[in-house]
Simulated scan of single mutants.
Amino acid sequence: MRMRFLKRLAVLAALVIPMHAFADDPLKVGFIYVGPIGDHGWSYQHDQGRKALEEHFGDKVQTTYVENVNEGADAERTLRRLAQAGNDVIFATSFGFMNAVARVAKDYPDKVFLHATGYKRAKNLGTYLSVTYEGRYVSGTAAGLVTQSNKIGFIASFPIPEVIRDINATFLAARKVNPDVELKVVWVSTWFDPAKEADAANTLMDQGVDVIIQHTDSPAAMLAAEKRGKWAVGQASDMSHFGPHAHLLSVVDDWAPYYIQTVQDVMDGTWKSEDYWGGIKEGDIKIVGLSDRLTDEQTSKVNDTIEAIRTGKLHPFTGPIYDQAGKLRIKEGEVATHEQLSSMDWYVHGMTATYPQ
């Protein structure tokens, strides 16, 4: 009788012990990157977050990563390999991984999946992003203040909502400080291709652009601007050393706080699927390396913009905002919802660039 009772207790204990209750078992965390960790941009910064995770938790975690993964069948195969290898938490760090991670998460309900910049969620699949449009609004403010030609250039990757809202935020901010600004856009259909990015930067500068902003990951545009004596804004990481004279500022994605908190929540058994947005206030977006070539007045305006966003006094998408055709999209005094921002597929009024098809 006593033996049967002890066996039943053992069975019950096995049912309630968390997956990672044993201190000797590290939490295995996998990362999948769309580009190389040496891109000095998006994938590089995610890998810096992975390294910060290791430094914070020490031997309590074991991380692995796969770089240069195409946003198609390769993504699904890679995600499955990470799950089969015993990774307990898997971060998929590019929009194009969305359908793949949704399928794999469904097949591995005991794993936690996080997808950057996407919108598909499940009980074991959450989404997260850095509010890059806040950084673009600061970039647009600075660009509008320093441009002499009144022509700003934007190197765009793919026509997804994240990129569209960043273009719009850049233009809204630039027009606020300089009503004569025109924003020219070149689409390169890649996240990382230094040759294409350099060609795009030179094409824009040939058209009279004197400030380059990018939603691609290499420092090629910064290098091109440095060579031709123009301004450029760093993407994802601090790119000031690639163009000491050209560098206007860099918008840095700091993923470390989110990765550390998410893994801690999984360890504590408190993690729940959510759609996380982190910006300047949360420390996930940082503005670094503002050029000392700006006047005191220009520097003050840029810093005031950063502080207004940080404190919530300024939201880049506060109405009234009209689209390119003159249709009211965000009513006066209202702030765009996450749903509106997540599905943005229109240019704001005043943009002369043709919306991509």
Rank of each mutant, 00 (worst) to 15 (best):
A10P: 11
A325H: 04
T141G: 01
A142I: 12
G72M: 05
A353L: 00
D265C: 13
G208M: 01
G283N: 09
D206M: 04
A198T: 01
K327F: 01
G319Q: 14
I152V: 11
A325V: 00
L114A: 07
D74G: 11
M205T: 07
H46Y: 12
H56M: 05
G58S: 14
D254M: 12
D253C: 04
S240C: 11
D254P: 08
F113V: 03
H247D: 03
I330C: 08
F31L: 15
A220V: 02
T262E: 14
G153W: 13
K120S: 09
H338S: 01
F192R: 06
W346M: 03
S149N: 01
M344P: 03
W277P: 05
F22Q: 09
E282V: 14
I152H: 04
H315D: 12
P36Y: 14
L290G: 05
H349R: 15
I164R: 13
I164K: 13
V34G: 14
L12S: 07
H338F: 11
F57Y: 03
G234K: 02
D24S: 13
D180C: 06
K151A: 14
Y355E: 09
V112T: 06
V181M: 06
D268Q: 05
A105P: 10
M205I: 04
A308Y: 00
V163P: 07
A13F: 15
L249V: 12
G49W: 12
L125S: 04
G278K: 05
F91H: 01
N150R: 07
M19I: 08
T216C: 10
W271M: 15
V29K: 02
A156S: 09
G289H: 12
D265P: 10
V266T: 10
K227S: 13
D304H: 07
A13Q: 09
K196F: 11
V146E: 00
K301T: 04
G269N: 02
E134V: 03
S342R: 07
T203Q: 11
I32L: 04
Q340D: 06
A143T: 02
G126I: 14
D47C: 13
M3N: 07
D39Y: 09
W346I: 10
E282I: 03
A256K: 11
Y259T: 00
Q235S: 10
M351E: 13
A105L: 02
E76V: 13
F242D: 13
T170V: 02
E274A: 13
T262G: 01
P159D: 09
F5L: 06
I212Y: 07
K176G: 10
L53M: 06
V186Y: 07
E274C: 11
S43Y: 00
Q235N: 13
N303A: 08
M351V: 12
R77M: 03
G118P: 03
V288N: 06
G144L: 06
D284E: 12
F317P: 06
E71W: 11
D88K: 00
M3D: 13
K151Q: 09
K123M: 09
D292Y: 11
D199C: 06
A220W: 12
A116Y: 00
D166I: 00
T170N: 12
Q340S: 04
D238M: 05
S149P: 03
F192G: 06
R175M: 15
V181L: 10
T352I: 14
T270H: 02
W346F: 12
K106H: 07
S237K: 01
G38P: 02
V302R: 10
V185W: 00
